[in-house]
């Protein structure tokens, strides 16, 4: 089996008295879609926030490509090659789709302060941005103001922006939320395609989509990992059936 690119061990995070993430360990591998499921309030998004550096862990440690990244700021983690998308579309509504991606892509310029460099002239950055849009299926909407995109397109743009930072690991928080059936199918295909050379950790509620794309499933309940394993083993796990799918099973 391939070595995991991300190893998180015994992560803990509390909001006041509520322990949202309690002793959670998780591995992610390149070529693998790891799906994180669980009822609302199980701590899935908090876990994503811990891995992306948006929140700091109270205990536990995170290794990425063998290096300790625990306690790094979100921009440092992004620079290491972990990109995240948000549950609620978090894009620059006043910019065009292309500008959104270019902004993401230019964060990879070797040094960050370019006071007088006109972004139109950085062909490398523009190429990355175009490629990311094309991969996410937004080639036709390049010059559309992001605020004028449909909900599904905004979700695609959200993924395109993460791709434009050329990440190795994608943390996707409900990329299918609110999407129609067609759009969902396309997004699942996109993620399958991306998983060939990326590691993907995806939070999702759509059970059909999860079983269609995931290689590994982790079920969280009340901040703890209830079960983790292949889709088949999860489906037949009695604990998961009672906690998540209802007592009757699927």
């Amino acid at each position: 089996m391939i070595e995991p690119i991300l190893i998180a061990r015994k992560l803990v995070h509390s909001f006041g008295g509520l322990t949202a993430v309690n002793n959670v360990s998780i591995d992610c591998r390149v070529g693998e879609i790891h799906a994180l499921i669980g009822p609302n309030g199980a701590g899935k998004t908090t876990l994503i926030n811990l891995l992306s550096g948006d929140l700091q862990v109270n205990a536990g440690n995170i290794l990425f490509e063998g290096n300790e990244i625990t306690g790094l700021k979100s921009y440092q983690i992004s620079q290491r090659g972990i990109a995240r998308s948000y549950q609620k579309s978090n894009i620059f509504l006043m910019f065009t789709a292309f500008e959104n991606c270019r902004l993401a892509a230019q964060s990879r310029l070797p040094h960050s302060m370019h006071f007088f460099l006109n972004p139109d002239t950085c062909s490398a950055v523009n190429e990355v941005a175009h490629a990311a849009l094309a991969t996410a299926g937004l080639s036709g909407r390049i010059d559309t103001i992001a605020g004028a995109l449909s909900h599904g397109e905004r979700r695609q743009l959200e993924v395109a922006m993460t791709l434009a930072t050329v990440p190795k690991l994608l943390l996707l928080d409900e990329p299918l939320a609110g999407m129609g059936a067609d759009e969902s199918t396309r997004m699942v295909e996109l993620l399958r395609k991306l998983s060939a050379n990326h590691s993907i950790l995806v939070v999702e509620h759509d059970v059909d989509a999860i079983f269609a794309m995931a290689d590994v499933l982790t079920v969280m309940v009340n901040g703890m990992v209830l079960a983790s394993g292949s889709p088949d083993s999860i489906r037949s796990d009695p604990k998961v059936q009672s906690a998540y799918f209802g007592v009757s099973g699927v």
Partner: peptide, 12 residues
Amino acid sequence: LNESRMNSLGYP
């Protein structure tokens, strides 16, 4: 427009 998003895109 969105400082936290800029952070997560890798900008200090």
